[in-house]
Design a protein around this nucleic acid. Structure first.
Lengths: 243, 243
DNA sequence: TCTCTGGAAAATGTATACAATCTGAGAATC
DNA sequence: GATTCTCAGATTGTATACATTTTCCAGAGA
């Protein structure tokens, strides 16, 4: 059985999120609590909690007169969300460079980068899944570098929006023609960021990290244009208003 | 009657927040839902919602085994929170400078700055309350400059923590010896920021805004040292662990 | 004196009932 | 024909009841 030790709230969160991201309710219409609860097989209480949380995450919007609707994002919204994630990660690495980083964390990050190198491997034998996992791990490590709960927390929050996370658009990048080049470029940025942190070059680390986030923006732009051909492949892309 | 059109949730939020900030429950002990609900005169349902929200804001922490406790902040946490607010506001003004700002917003901001000048006035007739109000308004305007719902939203979120808001430590600054000098300095920064935005100098606007936020840090340091003499004057200062 | 165990009291998580409010469609009016 | 009005159905916000889990203290045993 897949879900065993989960609370009803957790089930509601998972269910609601996947329903919303699937684009089933994209119309912007109100989400009925009773219908939702019945569909997910739980009572309104945990469902309501889950809705509150998704509102806080930005996936749902509250309606003034009561209830929620699915949020809709413009291309500019996504661009801004990615920019903000870059700004926050950039701050993390700047602080890390300024304050110094725990050597064990640095070693972990270096190991992850080595692993990414292996994942990239030769042209033919690219291990894409491994890249995605290790990339996420590297970014998670960056967030921990400054040893600041507040910074870590806010970075995590920035990555909650489906488009802003470091892994967004990545699992679907396999269909982008020259994606291998792009991955190699990203990895060079990874190395440069780590190098700058070690060298205590805060401004450089920050600038590199911001630029690194913009790769996600490029991927989004590509997918956005190719959307008609690759419908609903990217989780949550249905929430983007096609202006 | 003070509270009329408020929902029970709103009442719970206001009541809980003020209870927490008052430092009544600082011990880090678990907050009893039933006791809380009885004290505030409402049922557990809206109270629970309010607790969820304060957890999201960072004022409460969830306990693994259930329930919540009051969060406790280190000096470093507060320093980081202020830094992050500066980073976010800095991003807003950089984007504003890069993208250009609606002239009507610029005019409003200029008017607010004029009003602050009046509030500062001559040495004897400083209108402190007015300064606080107009300062908050100026910062709110900055958040709106980039015309980005996401940026505005995240800045607002950063300002939720009681120590990170642009008005934090300000209402209590009256007791700092040379606070008038400090206010004048802040106002010069305000003008420089606006000037940089108009001149499309993104990097300058960003750097100035970050530095501006650090004034709050200086105020906090002062209050932190003087805490024994001014106990519990600053709302929420009770949550700061006196290491 | 300390540790461990047992169990009662209390607290939380969840479901459900109820009242106030909103929605939407059809009737009535201009 | 368009607009306003009305009212029933549906929906949300809130209170409360119930079951499970957690807490904590007392007492036994080492």
């Amino acid at each position: 059985m897949p879900s065993q030790n989960l609370s009803q709230l957790d089930r509601a969160l998972l269910g609601l999120r996947s329903l919303v991201l699937s684009g089933e309710y994209e119309g912007g219409q109100r989400l009925s609590e009773v219908a939702m609860a019945k569909q997910l097989g739980l009572s309104r209480t945990p469902l309501r909690q889950a809705m509150d949380r998704l509102v806080a995450e930005g996936l749902l919007e509250r309606i003034e007169t009561g209830g929620c609707r699915v949020a809709s994002f413009s291309n500019d919204d996504i661009s801004d969300a990615i920019e903000l994630r870059g700004v926050m990660e950039g701050t993390a690495v700047r602080l890390a460079a300024e304050r110094g980083v725990d050597p064990s964390l640095l070693a972990q990050a270096a190991a992850v980068l080595d692993s990414i190198d292996e994942a990239l491997g030769a042209a033919a034998e690219l291990d894409f899944d491994r890249y995605v996992v290790e990339n996420a791990r590297f970014h998670a490590l960056l967030a921990q570098f400054p040893k600041s709960p507040i910074v870590a927390r806010e970075i995590e929050r920035m990555s909650l929006l489906p488009f802003a996370s470091p892994s967004a658009f990545l699992s679907d990048q396999a269909m982008i023609p020259d994606f291998q080049v792009s991955l190699g470029y990203a990895q060079r940025q990874h190395r440069a960021i780590l190098e700058a942190i070690v060298a205590r070059e805060g401004a450089r680390a920050e600038a590199l990290t911001r630029e690194h986030a913009r790769l996600a923006l490029a991927n989004f732009s590509y997918l956005s244009k190719a959307r008609s051909k690759l419908p609903h492949f990217v989780s949550g892309l249905a929430l983007v208003a096609s202006e």
